[in-house]
Nucleic acid binder design. Structure first.
Length: 473
RNA sequence: GGCGGCGUAGCCAAGUGGCCCAAGGCGACGGUUUGCAAAACCGUUAUCCGUGGGUUCGAAUCCCACCGCCGCCUCCA
């Protein structure tokens, strides 16, 4: 498998530290507002990667943090904490705010069929680990104390800038942040801050205060994955300063290489524009569902293009995604039908080749830096062949199994367990009877009646029929 | 100013030196099937890949220039 590594800016062959096992850390949400589709693109890329690694038989330990403190509004390490701002505005305790938006995030994650990570560690529950790491950084000379604040000394870390390609000189030249007199170097960043106005305060060796933003990921990733691990994911905006600072902290503290592969998801555009609150195009998953879009279509849409490419999210695209999923679902229904009704038999060489080729090509496509477009093309080529084939029950079952393997990665199919109401069933039977009498007029009238109640009836080969909710597969 | 990405059909999007007169999805149109539908299948929908040069036997793919779009460097996935 090959992955593009932001650190080296190259596509590299992926080799886990331990064969068959992968440790993966994903930067999760800062829970000060409802996460939107852009946030979820990044989380879905992590989910896709994890599912694919699992598809390949690799055991993945996945950690996703929830940031519920310390995310300052500006990186001059001044100003308000975003959670605190929300708390003050809504006149609520920061933890209450965090809970509301954490719940919203978890709910949307579930709607999008994101496999829960092994752990969602919260920053506020790891203050001790952060303090311990800060102490080490001070002891090793990478951090210094000024009054009740602790700063990381970027000049002590030779590789600062390796991830983002920034150099300290360039950063200074382009700096738009105000100079903080306490810092030795303008790019030094806070590890621990003192601010009497801050609502969330903890005791520390440097007095009451709260942790800087970057330290949480360093502390929590090493706690759950060790000081050195395989993959770290996040949005492209995390590259600098967040991930750059994480590397500086973690590698300085442990003396080991921190992360082997850095994956960054590019931003989502909405109708060709950057999403922002002022443009009013920051949709949440829940809002899209209220608008009538299907949750699996949202998932499909968000994963259907390459993660290192800006993806232009549109409502038309969502509709196209619904159609595409329907196509797969329709094939599943057909195969289920064959599996149940066709005669038993052996799996022919032809069918054997069809599904083994499909799985191999699907694997190859995603192994190429998660080439999802190619993988989907493989999937649809397979669907077309499956729809054409005349087959026995065992073959249908094998093809269903193939689709289910593919969907263990895509995660877009839904169990078709719609309960059909009794009266609709009766109407469908009535129509069947009319059809047998070739009373087309009556049959069509019943069909119209069924449709008026929000259901559709479709004939299947052999005189049967299927009832489904109107607009569904 | 520094760092980086992109421009392929009506839309989304793969392909990064010969298999490309360019995959796949959506849409559209025609056909097969159907009592009629739906679904499915078949066919058509880019002789050409932002523009102009160059390298090469050969380029969407490499080089140069230009135009356009976008991201990071400041909170953001």
């Amino acid at each position: 498998m090959k992955l593009y590594n932001t650190l080296t800016r190259k596509i590299e062959k992926f080799k886990p530290l331990q064969q068959g096992k992968v440790g993966m850390y994903s930067c999760g949400p800062t829970v000060y507002s409802h996460p939107h589709i852009g946030n979820f693109r990044s989380f879905l890329v992590a989910d896709l990667l994890k599912r694919f690694l699992e598809f390949k038989g690799i055991k993945v330990t996945h950690i996703m943090n929830i940031t519920d403190v310390g995310h300052l509004v500006d990186d001059a390490d001044e100003g308000a904490d975003k959670l605190e701002e929300a708390a003050k505005k809504q006149k609520k305790d920061p933890l209450e705010i965090a809970k509301v938006y954490t719940d919203s995030f978890l709910q949307a994650s579930k709607l999008l069929n994101i496999k829960p990570p092994d752990k969602y560690p919260k920053a506020t529950e790891h203050i001790k680990e952060m303090i311990d790491m800060i102490k080490i950084l001070i002891d090793k000379g990478y951090a210094y104390v000024v009054g009740n604040n602790v700063y990381y000394d970027v000049t002590k870390f030779a590789n600062y800038g390796q991830l983002s390609g920034n150099t300290l000189d360039d950063l200074n030249a382009g700096a738009r942040i105000e100079i903080n007199e306490e810092k030795k170097h303008p790019q030094d960043f806070a590890l621990w801050k003192h601010d009497p106005k801050h609502l969330q305060q903890w005791d520390s060796p440097w007095g009451k205060g709260f942790p800087g933003w970057h330290i949480e990921c360093s502390a929590m990733s090493s706690k759950y994955l060790g000081a050195e691990f395989d993959i770290h994911t996040g949005g492209e905006d995390n590259i600098f300063p967040h991930h750059e600072c994480e590397i500086a902290q973690s590698e300085a503290a442990s003396g080991k290489k921190f992360v082997h592969y850095w994956l960054h998801t590019r931003f989502l555009l909405f109708d060709g524009e950057k999403m922002s609150k002022s443009k009013g195009n920051l949709y949440t998953i829940q809002e899209l569902i209220e608008k009538g879009f299907k949750k699996n279509a949202i998932r499909y849409s968000l994963i259907s293009s390459h993660y290192r490419q800006n993806y232009n999210f549109t409502f038309d695209g969502l509709k196209a995604a619904e159609q595409a999923i329907d196509k797969i679902q329709q094939c599943v229904i057909r195969l289920e039908d064959i599996r149940k009704t066709a005669k038993q038999g052996k799996i022919s060489e032809q069918v054997q080749k069809l599904f083994s080729d499909c799985l191999a090509e699907f694997d190859n496509a995603l192994s190429d830096d998660l080439n999802i477009s190619k993988a989907l093309a493989v999937c649809f080529d397979f669907i077309r062949e499956a729809n054409k084939s005349d087959m026995n029950s065992a073959e249908a079952s094998a093809l269903l199994d193939t689709i289910s393997k593919i969907d263990s990665v895509l995660g877009v199919l839904e169990a078709a367990d719609t309960e059909v109401p009794e009266n609709i069933k009766e109407l469908a039977e009535k129509r069947k009877a009319a059809k047998l009498n070739k009373d087309w007029k009556a049959a069509d009238a019943v069909r119209a009646e069924i449709l008026a109640q929000g259901w559709t009836v479709e004939d299947t080969p052999g005189g049967g029929y299927r009832v489904k909710r109107a607009g569904e597969v």
